[in-house]
Structures are given as C-alpha cells and as structure tokens.
Amino acid sequence: MSNERIIPYQPTVIAGPKQALLVTPETAELMIKKSKRPLLILGPLVKEEPLLSFASNIAEKWNLPVVTTADAYKPFKDKGLNPTSYGVVEIVNLLNDPEWKGVNGEGQHDLVIFLGCIYYIGSQGLSSLKHYAPHLKTLTICKFFHSNADASFPNMKDEEWFKYLKKMGTSG
C-alpha cells in the first residue's frame, strides 16, 4: 500500500475529514522554533533506552519543559530532566483550558509535542485537543501516524524513527 505511512497507525482511529500534516524532523524542529511556549509530553513507551536518551536529548536541546505520563517520571528524573508528572488525561484536560497557566506558570502552551504515550489513549487525548484546544497545536513524534494531531511523523520502523529522533536531539 503506497500510502501506508499516512494511514493512522491503528487505521480505525480515523475520525473525519481532517488529517494530520505529515512532518519530517526538519518541519518538526521548525514548529518548535516558531512556538513561544512549547511543552514536551513523554509517555511510558519511551522510558527505556535508547529512547530514554533520545527523548531527553530533544528536551535538553530545545530547552523544553517536560510532562511525563503514567510512570515515566522516575526514569526521566534520573536522567537529569526536571519533569512534572500528570496522567495523560489530566494534562490534556489542563491543556484544554485556555486559562491554564502552563507547567511553569508562564501561560498556556501553544505547542504540545507527544512522544511515547500508548497509541489509543494518546489518540483520544489528541482528539480532545483537536476539538477543544484551538489555542494550541499538537505534534507527535512517535513512530506512528496520529491522524488526530495537527502534525505527525509517519508510520515507520525503529531504525528510521531512531534516526529522526537523533536528528531532533543533536545540535547543529
């Protein structure tokens, strides 16, 4: 199938005519650069190496505030990040509220980057933000195409995905 990379990874999460924009690491980086108050959300699927390092490097390189979901907190804390822990539904609920002041109290975020949440609950969270958080954009950098995001990496195998993540996490 030629368009396999941009059919939602779990094909039945398709929700309607609006689909995410397919992005490369370069476009993803551009989105982060343009954003004023980005937030990186890291889920339990990236709490082990080498993904733990890839994700931490991205956070550090772009100086992103980090929220961890489920039990991803400890590994990232041990890795030297200073994450805030929320359930994925809790953080999405806060992001839906235009009045919320963000994890650092500096104002609601304008870009939320997801990495490592369980696909189907992640997809539900993205759907919630798509409907009720017009004040922010969502980007997913998992190895799965997430049609409910504004922008998403395509479906890919580990090898290619690791390259993408490394690229986003190294300077220069």
Binding site: A15, G16, S128, H131
Partner: peptide, 9 residues
Amino acid sequence: PFYAPFCDM
C-alpha cells in the same frame, strides 16, 4: 466532563 471524541462526525 472531559470529552475526547472518538469520531468527529
């Protein structure tokens, strides 16, 4: 209520 639509339609 926190909503997460399963479908847009």
